[in-house]
Design a binder for these strands. Structure first.
Length: 212
DNA sequence: ACATTAAGTGATT
DNA sequence: AATCACTTAATGT
């Protein structure tokens, strides 16, 4: 287990910090499709993802879920970091997309390490940064009503986190995650096929191009 | 062969 | 882009 942690974070954290992480953290293994954190839950630990992928979703007023982003190995959770300061509760829901192994760190350590270790500061800042960047991207496509880009990005992201270009998924499921209708997704999928960006079969989509 | 579910299409808002 | 109504195709029993 220590190996798994080192494999992922050896170059990011200094030795001292790694030892503290190993001392205070506890390993948690989660099956696929489990709701790990729900909205309103109290956050007592901060996760370091060692393997697997986690889907982070929010909910609108009518209770419709929509996808914010994925967390994968080497990631942590910006939301948790934020909530630690002031003991706020979770505003999002986290569901395991694959079986997941994470390292749970008590949030009390957060403050302490922020002062003690510069590699920890860099890590936290970096997490915020990449999250913010990704959010801006989604806002961008959202504002311009570019559903086609959203669908394509969704498929690429999913292929990345699941480590496979071939995805077992239906148009309806994509529509649900992007909060649109199945009909719309089907039509956009057809465009993407015409552009040779993807290919499909029943219950299956293969991503062919990962660039634009 | 029949029922069910996924995906395609045209028209309308 | 969303919704409706309807068709066609693929699969399971």
């Amino acid at each position: 287990m220590e190996d798994l942690l080192r494999e992922q974070y050896d170059y990011i954290f200094e030795e001292e910090l790694l030892k503290e992480i190993l001392k205070d953290g506890l390993v948690r293994k989660v099956d696929k499709g489990v709701c790990m954190i729900d909205m309103g839950d109290e956050l007592t630990h901060m996760p370091l993802i060692l393997s697997g992928a986690i889907k982070i979703v929010d909910e609108d007023n009518e209770g419709r879920e929509y996808l914010l982003y994925y967390l994968e190995k080497g990631d942590s959770c910006a939301m948790t970091m934020n909530c630690c300061v002031g003991g706020k509760r979770s505003e999002i829901r986290a569901i395991s997309e694959t079986p997941v192994i994470i390292y749970m760190i008590p949030i009390q350590r957060m403050d302490e390490w922020l002062i003690k270790y510069k590699s920890w500061r860099a890590f936290v800042l970096d997490s915020y940064n990449s999250r913010l960047k990704e959010m801006l991207e989604t806002i961008d496509t959202l504002a311009f009503h570019n559903m086609e880009q959203r669908v394509f990005k969704y498929l690429k992201d999913r292929a990345m986190v699941l480590n496979s270009a071939e995805l077992e998924i239906t148009h309806a499921q994509i529509a649900k995650d992007l909060n649109t209708s199945r009909v719309v997704v089907s039509r956009l999928i057809k465009k993407l096929i015409l552009d040779n960006k993807i290919s499909t079969n029943r219950n299956q989509v293969e991503v062919l191009k990962f660039s634009a």
